[in-house]
Simulated assay, not measured.
Amino acid sequence: MFGGGGGGMNPRKMKQMMEQMGINMDDIDAEEVIIRTPDEELVFTDAEVQLMEAQGQKTYQVVGEPESRERDATADADEADEADAEAGDDSVVDADDVELVAMRTGVDEETAREALEANDGDLADAVDHLE
């Protein structure tokens, strides 16, 4: 598709063609990449990472040899509990909704959360309540 002959294409010319097509590639100076699956973690400590952006879509390419670590069920449960505590998941209120109400009304996030909880998570009612 690109160029002729068996020698391939000049990397500089390839980059120019990709830029003309709206494709940008950048190297990322990553220290560590972790991919978590239900059973294991794939940990890349010396990986080459490239970001390719085309038509608003970002694609990350990771090249390297990962170390496989079995996931510990108790550690995962602890992490989930910590995340729940930080996000306040005991309520019906979404963190993005809290931020939106706080920005719209100029109140702090705690006040916005209380207004959302008082209005069963309804954004419009919470904003009306605070204004």
Rank of each mutant, 00 (worst) to 15 (best):
G4T: 13
G5Y: 14
G7E: 11
N10W: 11
P11H: 09
R12H: 06
Q16M: 04
M17C: 01
M17H: 12
M21N: 11
M21F: 14
M21I: 03
G22Y: 06
I23E: 00
I23F: 02
N24M: 06
M25N: 07
D26T: 14
I28F: 14
D29S: 12
E32G: 03
I34Y: 01
R36L: 07
T37N: 03
T37G: 06
D39S: 14
D39W: 08
L42V: 00
L42A: 00
V43E: 11
F44V: 02
T45Q: 08
D46L: 05
D46E: 15
D46P: 00
E48L: 01
V49R: 04
V49D: 02
Q50T: 13
Q50H: 09
M52G: 03
E53C: 01
A54Y: 13
Q55E: 10
G56C: 07
K58Y: 05
K58R: 15
T59P: 13
T59I: 08
T59Q: 14
Q61C: 04
V62A: 00
V62M: 00
E65S: 06
E67K: 01
S68T: 15
S68P: 00
A73T: 10
T74Q: 14
A75Y: 04
A75V: 08
D76I: 10
D76F: 12
A77D: 13
A77V: 04
A77N: 08
D78W: 01
D78Y: 02
D81G: 03
A83Y: 15
A83H: 13
A83D: 09
D84N: 13
D84S: 07
A85S: 12
A85Q: 11
E86A: 12
A87L: 15
D90Y: 14
S91C: 10
V92S: 14
V92G: 15
V93W: 11
V93T: 08
D94S: 07
A95N: 09
D96F: 05
V101N: 09
V101S: 13
A102P: 02
A102T: 02
M103P: 00
R104T: 15
T105E: 03
T105I: 03
T105A: 03
G106T: 11
G106V: 06
A112R: 11
A112T: 12
E114Q: 15
E114V: 00
A115P: 01
A115C: 06
A115G: 07
E117D: 14
E117F: 10
A118N: 15
A118F: 05
N119Y: 10
D122Q: 08
D122G: 05
L123P: 00
L123S: 09
L123Q: 13
D125G: 12
D125E: 15
D125F: 14
V127H: 05
D128F: 08
D128G: 01
H129Y: 14
L130T: 03
